[in-house]
């Protein structure tokens, strides 16, 4: 025979999954949320998302090419995911140079400084978002009103997010039930018709994306379910104990970044635990910290910090919560 045979260890066939396939699957699941955010916030939503994605991809390419001197791997889609997620937690009217700066921090500091895909301990999009949030608090908390394509790109009419309204009210010794009158109904919140960041507002669209990813087996549903469950139960207990100074649990689930964080940020493969048991611990931790910050901290929203804090515990969780081995418990019989 003239052609040489290939030799390698088994298995000799490989499943269809690949990193790009998974990443593009995540991106596909984000489409409904993107469509809704364009409907609510108009051109700004498109511009911010495009800027964020392009700068993330560009920075990853440049850093890999010229600083790390490795073949660029931007087509695996992970930089695109980071870009979209970063954009989704920003207000639609934010200056675009801030978006690019956030992308640089997300990719450069959050991902590449640790060695690139697979090595970063913290979710890159969240690193970028928290950097912007702390460095430019004014721009980052000017939430435009959802006015569709009528939303002005500059000097748009802004208002506080529902969570912000509650927090502000509580600080001024007001009670929750009257404050709720200023806030859209739960149904409106579910559709996302409120002030807030682009991707966070529409719980409905995010849940659609979640269902898509679970059906396509892109992510296991454990982490989002435990986070949302914990938030629901914890805020529910607080609400039952004292409805005067606590919002109801459904309100907590539908507002702020909990949905986006639970479904997309906390489930980032690289920065979440690897066993089912560990995932539950991780999810409960995020839920508890989120509620603690929302209720007792000075920020109205705490899910980003909660995820970053729990990211730091992932290596520990991984070494403490091992999968149950086959034949681990000796059976007699």
């Amino acid at each position: 025979m003239d052609k040489l045979l290939r030799v390698s260890y088994s298995p000799h066939i490989h499943g269809e999954n690949s990193v790009p396939r998974l990443m593009w699957g995540v991106i596909a699941s984000l489409v409904p949320a993107f469509v809704l955010s364009v409907l609510y916030f108009g051109l700004g939503a498109i511009l911010v998302t495009a800027t964020s994605v392009l700068s993330c991809v560009l920075f990853e390419y440049l850093i890999q090419r010229f600083i790390m001197k490795v073949p660029p791997t931007v087509n695996d889609g992970s930089a695109v995911v980071t870009g979209v997620l970063l954009a989704f937690c920003l207000p639609a009217t934010i200056p675009l140079w801030l978006v690019a700066l956030g992308a640089l921090v997300a990719i450069g500091v959050g991902k590449m400084s640790f060695g690139g895909l697979g090595s970063n301990p913290f979710n890159p999009a969240l690193v970028g978002r928290v950097f912007l949030f702390i460095s430019f608090p004014v721009q980052l908390t000017s939430w435009p009103l959802p006015m569709g394509f009528k939303t002005k790109l500059v000097d748009a009419a802004t208002g506080a997010t529902p969570l912000g309204v509650i927090k502000e009210g509580l600080l001024n010794n007001q009670q929750v039930p009257p404050l709720m009158d200023d806030i859209p109904s739960h149904m409106q919140l579910f559709y996302g018709n409120m002030n807030g960041s682009m991707g966070e507002v529409a719980a409905m669209a995010l849940l659609l994306g979640f269902i898509y990813m679970v059906v396509k087996k892109i992510i296991p549903p454990v982490i989002p379910l435990t986070i949302l469950g914990t938030v629901f139960v914890f805020t529910g207990i607080l609400w039952l104990a004292n409805p005067e100074s606590n919002a109801d649990p459904l309100f907590h689930l539908l507002t702020g970044g909990v949905m986006l964080g639970a479904i997309y940020m906390a489930t980032d493969y690289v920065t979440s635990p690897m066993t089912k048991k560990g995932m539950v611990v991780f999810g409960v931790g995020i839920g508890v910290i989120t509620v603690l910050i929302r209720r007792f901290g000075s920020y109205p929203e705490g899910v980003q910090f909660a995820i970053l804090i729990m990211n730091a515990f992932v290596p520990l969780i991984n070494s403490w919560f091992k999968p149950k081995r086959f034949g681990e418990e000796v059976q007699h019989g």
Binding site: N17, V19, L22, T73, D76, S78, G116, L117, G118, S119, P220, Y269, V270, S272, M274, T275
Partner: peptide, 9 residues
């Protein structure tokens, strides 16, 4: 071969 993304699969 790509880097491990710790997807737990």
């Amino acid at each position: 071969v790509l880097p491990c993304i710790r997807c737990s699969r």
